Amino acid sequence: MSQLISIPESYESLNLTHINIAHHPPQSPTATPIVILRLNRPDKNNAFTPQMGESLEQAYRLFHLDARVKVIVLTGAGRMFCAGSDLDIGFDDRVERAGDFRDTGGRVALAMHRCSKPTIAALQGSAVGVGMTMTLPAAIRICHEKSKYGFVFTRRGLTIESCASFFLPRLIGMSKAMALITTGGVYPGLSKYFGELFTEVLAEGTAVLPRALEIAREMAENVSPLASYMSRALMWQGPTSPEGAHLLESKVFHHMAGQSDYKEGVNSFLEKRKANFLCDPYEMSPGDYPWWSEVDIRVGPKASKSKL
């Protein structure tokens, strides 16, 4: 049975632990096409906690279903984006079997990845550990030139998480990903080790969020959410051969050409006006979406230890 989720009239009314959500433009009483999702522990440099992870998961579930939201901008409160996991609190890993553990950062990364709305990560300050890996499923990452960024897990006796072994090599190549992970080093945003991980690297940290919002506004006003959602899925979950890609793309393209967003996109271009895309990506995806076999990450049921 499907679980019913209540979509709030205003995201600013939600009381979520260690994060907050703001509408953009500000002072809107209801949800806006752009929402700002902030890690909100500035006194702890936004160090990640299990409660923060649960809040982020909840927020992304809501954004996925809410047709009013088109773009999510993820940033941090204060001078740092995220100082990695709060090591004083730990990882909420008290389970009997390793097979039952699901790393919290990975659950956040999957929630972002599966969300029908794209994320722009605005790293206004330094980020390490899960502060970096949680941003890998984002569509765009913007950072500050002089802040420091790194995947420091091996320097803490840990392995990478947040699905980084999947995302990072695909984003920057195996060679650069291997260098970042095996050194565990921390580098400025312009370091050659990051390759093209960051879409933009800005001279001033205070300029990162405004620039992210500028891009978000351009996307919200000009891009079909359904077309964006399907295009991202084709790239992340596409076949491994050009022939397979051709067959799948043709099928999805045929579906898209029959949607009202295609007609609106053409008409708005010919009439030299802003498009008004109305296709909800959650409701209007192709009938065979997802076209891949999804892996079930749920922890299986356990037998009762009580005697019959």
Rank of each mutant, 00 (worst) to 15 (best):
A111M: 00
P210M: 07
F198P: 01
G106T: 12
S10C: 07
D288H: 08
G184L: 02
N45M: 14
L180G: 05
A179F: 05
D280Y: 06
L270Y: 12
K274F: 12
G300K: 15
S13F: 08
S28T: 12
S293E: 15
M112R: 12
I160D: 05
S147V: 01
K176Q: 14
D92C: 08
I181P: 04
S147W: 03
Q259A: 02
R114F: 05
E214L: 11
E145W: 07
V252C: 09
G150F: 07
S250F: 02
V35I: 11
I5A: 14
D261M: 11
M80K: 11
A22I: 03
V201C: 09
L110H: 05
R298V: 05
A275R: 09
F194D: 04
C143I: 06
C279I: 00
R94F: 10
K305Q: 14
R41G: 02
I72P: 05
G205Y: 06
E161R: 02
L39M: 04
S268C: 14
A138M: 00
G131Y: 02
L248N: 00
K192I: 08
A275L: 12
S306G: 11
A111S: 14
A31H: 10
R61Q: 15
A227F: 12
T49N: 02
M256E: 01
E214K: 12
S10T: 05
F101V: 04
K117P: 00
R38A: 07
A216W: 03
H113W: 13
M256D: 02
